[in-house]
């Protein structure tokens, strides 16, 4: 299991691509299948590789568009 995961609230994403360009492990991509209610292709987690470093959160201009999760032992 990956150390972390990031979740994009796709309706709040403006598709600026900052998180994609800044993610050190390249685990975020545009969701070209989806056009959100603002008319953007939102970012999405590729589904693997997230380290929960938080860089995507701290570069995202939308307050609620990205949430970063960390794996904790149950």
């Amino acid at each position: 299991m990956d150390r972390g995961k990031m979740v994009v609230n796709s309706d709040e994403c403006k598709g600026c691509g900052l998180c994609i360009s800044q993610c050190p492990v390249g685990c975020i991509e545009f969701d070209n299948e989806t056009i959100n209610k603002q008319g953007y292709h939102p970012a999405k987690y590729t589904g693997s590789g997230c380290t929960a470093c938080g860089i995507c959160f701290n570069v995202c201009p939308e307050p609620g568009a990205i949430t970063v999760y960390k794996l904790v032992k149950a």
Binding site: K5, K14, Q38, F57, P63, I66, T67, V68
Partner: peptide
């Protein structure tokens, strides 16, 4: 998984003063 970085509480949940979409 537990959230470690999420929308700060010091923001409004909904931006009621704003016209149009009040979530962005």
């Amino acid at each position: 998984y537990e959230p470690i970085l999420e929308k700060p509480k010091s923001f409004f949940d909904i931006y009621k003063e704003k016209s149009g979409d009040q979530t962005i």
